[in-house]
């Protein structure tokens, strides 16, 4: 099988997106590189990106696993909640 970009893998899933409910908030000024590196490596959906010394986060494609919360709660991750009811990923296989 050919390698697929993460965007293409995530595009196979069903998501009910809600732009007004980021459900995860990050501290954009957070600067501990080692900590950021771990979260970037760990997020299975690559929602975190670290480019030019800046960390960015997009909740689109989030699989709601909680990895970033456990790794960096109170550090890079300011707040974490499940999305609103019915919002977010909807597994058909699981």
């Amino acid at each position: 099988m050919k390698r697929m970009a993460i965007e293409n893998k995530l595009a196979l899933n069903v998501f009910h997106t809600e732009d007004n409910d980021p459900h995860i908030e990050i501290d954009k000024e957070y600067a501990n590189e080692e900590e950021i590196r771990k979260v970037v490596l760990a997020c299975p959906a690559e929602c975190y990106k670290y480019i030019d010394g800046k960390v960015t986060f997009s909740h689109l494609g989030c699989l709601e696993c909680g990895t970033c919360r456990v790794l960096s709660h109170g550090k890079l991750v300011k707040s974490w909640n499940h999305p609103f009811g019915s919002v977010g990923v909807l597994y058909r296989q699981g």
């Binding site: 099988m1 899933n13 990895t67 456990v70 699981g94």
Partner: peptide, 17 residues
């Protein structure tokens, strides 16, 4: 693993703790 998956099509990508 690779030969076992040859010709397969990914249907879903999931994650969980």
């Amino acid at each position: 693993i690779a030969p076992l998956l040859e010709g397969g099509e990914t249907e879903e990508y999931a994650a969980h703790l």
